[in-house]
Design a protein around this nucleic acid. Structure first.
Ligand SMILES: [Mn+2]
Ligand SMILES: [Mn+2]
Ligand SMILES: [Zn+2]
Ligand SMILES: [Zn+2]
Lengths: 129, 129
DNA sequence: TCACAAAATAGTAATCATTACTAATTATTT
DNA sequence: AAATAATTAGTAATGATTACTATTTTGTGA
């Protein structure tokens, strides 16, 4: 790793944190070890790391972007009461009717599935070039 | 319906629009028929209608909230090239490995599944009261 | 029909997460 | 070591969204 001390620290902090922290969260944690780090650096490095695919951005619609050091395939359960973001395994949300989820005590009320990729039109366009 | 003329118009505009418009989009469309409507009113009424469950908010992580007049169960495919938001039926994303999606020419690259509800801890707490 | 209360609106100001900018610092290459 | 590139701290700007306020519209009941 030829990352700067700050970037290294930000990455370590995200990887170790299990609560899906926001940029502000990371900023406050990192400040303990690097007191004069800039919030701008935290945002820049988090975006850099997400762009590189080393961490993951998650948008739960609460105005702040959350970050996840776990880039394995999984989805998230947001509790509308306490706000906690729980990790959910593929087998627990892919089965019909959320049976597994309910068996574990979760009460799913709303599910937002957003798939990103290339639509048929853009894919055709690309293949023509 | 005992909605105001503005609210009625906003609702109609969202229902008729198939491209998942933003508040700004709605504002510009509605202004054609009601030239001195306020952007604040558009935001207020869109939130009111979403809260009432008559329309749906969708957050695709592009900073702006999109609205959907179709509240039936379906999910969204966001093209990373053209940005278009496509409607996807349940059967097309629930099957393993996105077979149906690929058969239709979509290239799924990333899937964000966010489930909202009540976590086991909060559910237990509620049942105890 | 009129008075009064409640709801909704237009217009604007404030908020706040995020991004952009700049000058200074640090790392890398020649 | 000098030149070049990358990164940073600190701060300013951005922009979608929300909050506020005075005014207008709607509803209701005497
Ligand atoms: Mn996670
Ligand atoms: Mn839709
Ligand atoms: Zn909870
Ligand atoms: Zn496309």
């Amino acid at each position: 790793m030829n990352y700067s001390r700050q970037r290294e620290l930000i990455l370590k902090t995200v990887k170790e944190n299990k609560i899906h922290p926001t940029a502000q969260d990371i900023y406050e944690l990192v400040k303990e070890k690097s007191p004069n780090i800039s919030l701008g650096t935290v945002y820049r490095d988090l975006n850099f790391l997400a762009e590189a695919g080393i961490i993951r951005k998650i948008d739960i619609g609460d105005k702040q972007i959350h970050f996840d050091g776990d880039i394995s395939e999984h989805c998230h359960f947001v509790c509308l009461d306490c706000g906690k973001i729980h990790d959910i395994e593929r087998k627990d949300y892919c089965h019909d009717e959320n049976k597994n989820l309910i068996a574990k005590g979760f009460i799913p009320l709303r599910k937002d599935v957003i798939i990103y990729g290339q639509c048929p039109v853009c894919n055709k366009k690309e293949r023509e070039n």
